[in-house]
Design a protein around this nucleic acid. Structure first.
Lengths: 200, 200
DNA sequence: CAAATTTTGTATTCCAAAGTACAGAAAGAG
DNA sequence: CTCTTTCTGTACTTTGGAATACAAAATTTG
């Protein structure tokens, strides 16, 4: 019995995340967010009370979506453990490739939020989301490494937890290195060199 | 024939960098900068015209200092090429260790500035400093790798440019991963695993 | 010791960006 | 068709922090 929302909430969260992941929290103005979402100020504030709140929701949605993508790759049992990890790296590099074709780097909400202790302190939910997301992704990586140890694509002695942390660290590094204009091809090669210790 | 400055400029730049490397540009207030430097607003503005200018100078000093430290390690001819790179990683991890003992991560002006396209756009000098710094550090790393190829500590086939980029990428990743509370010991182990491809 | 000049402290101004108010338009329910 | 409710657009208010003004204090040199 009332006028329904003319925009899709998820779509707005994705548009917001696209801004935040490139510019970070502080350097994304509510103006930019409106522009990116194709919404007016009041619609945005009506749906999401504040920039802070919008950030939290965008981060949550972003983390879930990302994690979903990575889970799809890392649990694909048609591939060996090592192949899954290589495919994940390929996917990250591809993200950078399309961002590059748009004239910027892909950025990463996770890196931005992690690197900013003040942001995490401002809203405890942010730290919680980041922790949960990290934990989930490490678990997925550990499972893939264990699978690799069994199928023979990963050396037997490999510590799953540390291998997972290495892959995650390398990915964060890629996000940063991508900002300095390195080609996706070079990015791909160094990432594969970085996980050499995980390949049988 | 005039009252001399009561503070040391370098010391102020270092205090400023210590704030910027943790909080980033936007989330460091001029208030914090005054506090950290032990200076009053007017002294700060008198010496460095603006927050922007202070940031640029702090970044320049920070990059030079960091590069100097790294150069000392990477050109130490009493070590093999591989040993130099391992020692560099140890030094980065130690930085994180002391930061951790102070209750935070070390952060990195380079990572913050790189991840923020708006900041680089605001003042062309920032992009210039970052480019020069990256170039210098990659050159040092390449030299160490080449030295390693000669002394036999690094595999013959290794591409120096890509090896250098890998080490640099890993270090950036360490800066990020350190923010999530991983112990310095774990950080050290995964970093060494990450450069496995560079070790003979 | 006094002049010259710069530093320091407090208070103020200024600005950009976050957030709010409210009138008018749109859409479903009866 | 009309009533109700929610959405949309414009203009306004608020706020946090960067930057400035200026008077008083401090210090070196001649």
């Amino acid at each position: 019995m009332a006028r329904p929302r003319a925009f899709d909430e998820k779509t707005v969260l994705e548009a917001a995340a696209a801004q935040f992941r490139v510019h970070g929290y502080a350097d994304t103005s509510t103006e930019q967010l409106c522009e990116a979402a194709g919404l007016r100020r009041s619609s945005l504030y009506n749906a999401f009370t504040s920039k802070d709140e919008l950030f939290v929701q965008a981060l949550e949605h972003y983390a879930d979506t990302m994690c979903g993508h990575q889970a799809a790759i890392l649990t694909d049992t048609s591939l060996t453990g090592a192949e899954r990890i290589k495919k994940l790296i390929g996917a990250i590099v591809d993200e950078e490739r399309v961002a590059r074709s748009e004239g910027h780097a892909a950025g990463c909400m996770g890196v931005h939020a992690l690197m900013n202790p003040d942001l995490r302190a401002r809203d405890e939910r942010i730290a919680r989301i980041l922790d949960r997301d990290l934990r989930k992704r490490l678990d997925l990586l550990e499972d893939a490494i264990r699978a690799g140890r069994i199928d023979g694509s990963v050396p037997e002695g490999t510590d799953a937890a540390e291998g997972a942390l290495l892959v995650n660290t390398l990915i964060a590094g890629l996000r940063v290195t991508a900002q300095s204009g390195v080609t996706p091809e070079a990015l791909h090669r160094i990432a594969l060199d970085g996980i050499r210790s995980l390949l049988a």
